[in-house]
């Protein structure tokens, strides 16, 4: 018999694996891993502000992540330093501010480890609804944006010349990405959130001949990792989120080592 808390954990993590797959593939194709990482890190500031100003946690986290993403986009228009330097700047800037705000919360005990690494077994039924709602919204948006996003990933100038509005698309994708990262943070925490997006996508790459195949394989490997990771977690009494990410990483490493030597024909 599966305990209810374990059932909720499995459902939440599988849901995340499914909605993360299409996003994760685009993040990998567009070399946005560090961009995603920066959005995730900025959410610590969101947590801190929510606690300080007693705002709704989920909403504040999403709002701060989106704000950070748009600051990055605005800063990336300069041509003096490369984009990874801008990301490093934002990443550490928001982290520093987040830690300062959290340390100023006198009288409140803050479970910092919980936010950083997540607590998958603490997922509530209400969280599940929240994940489900965001999941449906994300899937609908991704279905709608799929073709233009793919065109932009293939070649941005070509897509623009053919009439794709890349600015609107980038904005939409950034908002969706921030939402999914906010969900991931609930489950695996700030530090491991991006792993849920990119690691299964990386693992899927050597097995895919087409973009859609890569998404499907990525989702499948994500689900397998969730089940294996949570089984490991309960039987060996190790933390759930890190166990899932560890399984994903082993699969991805093996995939790259054994199948990644050549692109499938």
């Amino acid at each position: 018999m599966i305990e209810p808390f374990l059932m909720r954990a499995i459902l939440a993590a599988i849901g995340l694996a499914l909605i993360a797959a299409p996003l994760g593939c685009f993040v990998v194709w567009n070399r946005m891993s560090y961009f995603g990482e920066t959005i995730a890190q900025a959410s610590l500031l969101g947590v801190a502000l929510a606690l300080l100003l007693q705002l709704d946690l989920n909403t504040t986290v999403v709002a701060v992540s989106i704000a950070a993403a748009f600051v990055v986009i605005a800063l990336s228009r300069q041509r003096v330093v490369p984009i990874d330097s801008v990301l490093g700047l934002m990443h550490h800037g928001t982290l520093a501010l987040g830690v300062i705000v959290i340390s100023s919360l006198k009288g409140q005990s803050v479970d910092l480890m919980g936010y950083l690494f997540g607590d998958i077994f603490a997922v509530s039924t209400q969280d599940l609804w929240w994940i489900g709602a965001i999941g449906v919204a994300v899937v609908l948006v991704m279905v709608k944006l799929w073709r233009p996003l793919l065109r932009v990933s293939v070649h941005e100038d070509l897509a623009r010349a053919e009439g794709v509005n890349t600015t609107a698309l980038r904005t939409g994708f950034t908002v969706v990405l921030a939402l999914v990262i906010a969900v991931a943070i609930k489950i695996v925490g700030i530090l491991l959130a991006i792993a849920f997006l990119i690691v299964p996508a990386v693992a899927a790459r050597p097995f895919a001949r087409n973009p859609e195949t890569m998404v499907v394989v990525s989702a499948g490997l994500g689900v397998v990792s969730v089940v294996a990771g949570l089984t490991m977690s309960t039987s060996a009494d190790i933390p759930g989120g890190p166990a899932i990410v560890l399984v994903m990483t082993v699969i991805a490493a093996a995939s790259l080592l054994f199948a990644g030597r050549q692109v499938p024909r």
Partner: peptide
Amino acid sequence: TGYVPQKFTLDPALPLTVERFLAVG
């Protein structure tokens, strides 16, 4: 307009057949 850009490199992380590349445009 039909456009052929000067530089075209596809990120190796993105799997794409020629047929799909033509269809998606």
